[in-house]
Write a protein that binds this DNA or RNA. Structure first.
Lengths: 194, 194
DNA sequence: CATAAGTCGTACTCCGATGTACGACTTCCA
DNA sequence: TGGAAGTCGTACATCGGAGTACGACTTATG
């Protein structure tokens, strides 16, 4: 929690913490098994310094995930969700998929070290954003209502994750991801007009 | 490769191998980090016996995955893929999703220990079955053609995997999985009739 | 029933990663 | 500028899992 306003730290300590978290995001975002040592090196910092700020791996992973989600929230909060629900969803997906690509293996790392509940908590904000948009679309008759909304929300996530994996595996060109994701998700959500 | 007709083994050896592979399927299907020892215990066999048949973990994982896919092939080859493409796909999905639930974490284990290419090879048969069905649906005008077929095939897999995860997380009741999966996949594949 | 094949316990080595202890050094900042 | 705060190398204890070596025992099978 950055808002926790902990004990006043020296400026360089603060800087190092930021570096470490950012390095963790990057390293774990590439390889979920990156060691503490790898991360410290990537941050340009000794392993001992890292342990000075994070008691153990779990604490570090949590900080990295929290930061990734915080940054995501920041980016996503800029998206205009007004107007036609389908268009709004398209805009949201356009801004979202890259974040998923970036952090997907970080999420895998978290799944291995953090309690499930904690992960869900951290995802609450982005999930709610999607849920609200879907609900609005349903109210307007644009989106289907014959499937549980929890599934609709999660399938959006799974499709993005799937696209991210295909992208990493070089089976889906980066330039095509956005289009493919939006076309797929819109097909899933669209109200059957029959 | 079961067809490799290796050196004639004693009957009990054969039996133990089968037990081990099956235990591996089950253990790794639950926890991708299950240790060799766990698996041996689950098979009711000494660790040394296991090593007598599988040189290392990778070999065991490969055998387990191969067996899981072989069993899957067997089940799926019984599905009638004739008639209306949508109906055929529905039947195929009905028979498939449970297999995905069973083996999803085994697949994760394989991803950690086997070369990517090997995994794809083993998946060739089921993937091709889906691809052919989609192609036929496209020829008949029932399925969309505006997205790459490789994506359509893989999205089917990702949706099933997503549903499997939701199911494990208790957010999607087992009895609902089949319906939700087919409704979702059919929406994705359906040709836009506008 | 003899013997080759297979089982499997014990007891190692090896390895990489985590986390701790200590202490000398550097840097901030009041 | 002095002392607190922070850095960080070296060295260590620990842990768990992988794989090996040995050898005595059991069992299938010709």
């Amino acid at each position: 929690m950055p808002t926790a306003a902990g004990p006043r730290r020296r400026a360089d300590a603060e800087r190092n913490i930021a570096r470490i978290v950012s390095a963790a995001r990057e390293s774990l975002g590439t390889d979920p098994h990156a060691s503490i040592d790898d991360i410290a090196k990537a941050a340009g910092v000794g392993r001992m310094t890292l342990y000075g700020h994070f008691r153990n791996r779990a604490e570090l992973v949590e900080a990295a995930l929290a930061e990734a989600l915080r940054a995501g929230e920041e980016a996503l909060s800029a998206v205009d969700l007004g107007g036609d629900a389908q268009d709004a969803l398209t805009r949201l997906l356009d801004s979202s998929w890259a974040l998923v690509v970036e952090s997907m293996s970080l999420l895998a790392a978290a799944q291995g070290t953090l309690p499930v509940g904690r992960i869900r908590e951290l995802h609450a904000a982005p999930a709610q954003r999607v849920e609200e948009l879907i609900r609005r679309g349903q109210d307007e008759g644009a989106f289907r209502t014959d499937l549980p909304i929890t599934w609709l929300v999660s399938v959006v996530h799974h499709v993005m994750k799937g696209a991210a994996e295909e992208n990493r595996a070089k089976r889906l060109k980066t330039e095509d991801v956005a289009h493919v994701v939006t076309a797929t998700v819109l097909s899933i959500l669209a109200a059957p007009h029959a």
